[in-house]
Design a protein around this nucleic acid. Structure first.
Lengths: 113, 113
DNA sequence: TAAAATACCTAAGATGTCTATGTATTGCCA
DNA sequence: TGGCAATACATAGACATCTTAGGTATTTTA
C-alpha cells in the first residue's frame, strides 16, 4: 500500500473539520477509512498524526467528544462545536485561497470542476 | 502587508524548482519578488525559509550557484542541474496529485483552467 | 541625509508530521 | 481453535520545514 510521502502541514486539521461538517459525528479510525475511501486508497492518514490532531482540536474547543462502546471496544466520537463549524469554513476558505495562489505560481494545469 | 499564516510544507522547494525551470537562472531575492508579483502581493516567501532551502537544494545537487556582482553588491544566481530539471517535474507532478486528492476529500469548488 | 529597498545570512523556537511501538478487542478462516 | 488481520485507541522520539528575529552591507530614492 502506497504511503503518503508527505501530508502537507496544516491540511490534516482541515480535513478533519471538513468531514465533521458533513457527518455530524465520527471517530478517529473512521476518519482514516473515509479519507482512504475518498481517495481510492491513495491518502492514508497516519494514526500518529491523527490522534494528536484530534486532541488538539478538542483542546481548542473546536470539537467535543463522547465515548460509545461497541461491546468492550470503546469509540471516541468527535463532533463540531459552534466554534468548530466556523473554523471549518475558515480553514476551507484559506486552503482554497492557497490552492489558487499556488496555481498562479506553479501553473499546475489542473482541470477541476 | 498580509503575511502567509502558513506556507505549506514542502511547497517552497517546489516553487523554487518550478520558477528556475522557466527562467534559466535567478537569485534569491529575485525569487521572493517574483512570487509576490505572481500572487498580487498575497504570498511572501520569507528569507529565513528561502535561503536555507536554496542551500539545501544546492547540497542535493539540484542547483548550481554562480556569483555575479552588481557594483559592490554580490548576487548568487541559481540554476537547475540536469538532476534538478528531473526533480522539478517530479515535484510538480506530486503536488498536482496532492491537490487532486485534496479536491476529492475537501470538495474545494475550484474553477481552474 | 535618512529611510527604504536590495541582497545576503543564521540561530532559536514552534509546529506538524512520520515512524515505531504499545495495548486490547473483535472477526475470520484454515 | 489458534493465529492473523482488522478495529480502535494512544504516546514518544525523530525529523523537516517554517516563522521570528536578528545581523551585515550596499544602493536608491525621497
Amino acid at each position: 500500500m502506497k504511503q503518503n510521502s508527505q501530508l502537507f502541514k496544516g491540511s490534516l486539521s482541515t480535513i478533519v473539520l471538513k468531514l465533521l461538517s458533513e457527518q455530524d459525528k465520527m471517530y478517529g479510525y473512521e476518519i482514516t477509512r473515509k479519507v482512504k475511501e475518498l481517495t481510492a486508497g491513495e491518502v492514508n492518514i497516519t494514526e500518529g498524526a491523527l490522534y494528536p490532531a484530534l486532541h488538539k482540536l478538542e483542546a481548542e474547543g473546536l470539537l467535543t467528544v463522547s465515548i460509545e462502546s461497541m461491546g468492550n471496544r470503546p469509540r471516541k466520537y468527535y463532533k463540531l462545536t459552534r466554534e468548530g463549524k466556523k473554523e471549518a469554513k475558515n480553514k476551507l476558505a484559506e486552503l482554497r485561497d492557497f490552492f489558487l495562489q499556488m496555481q498562479l505560481v506553479l501553473d499546475l494545469q489542473l482541470q477541476l470542476k
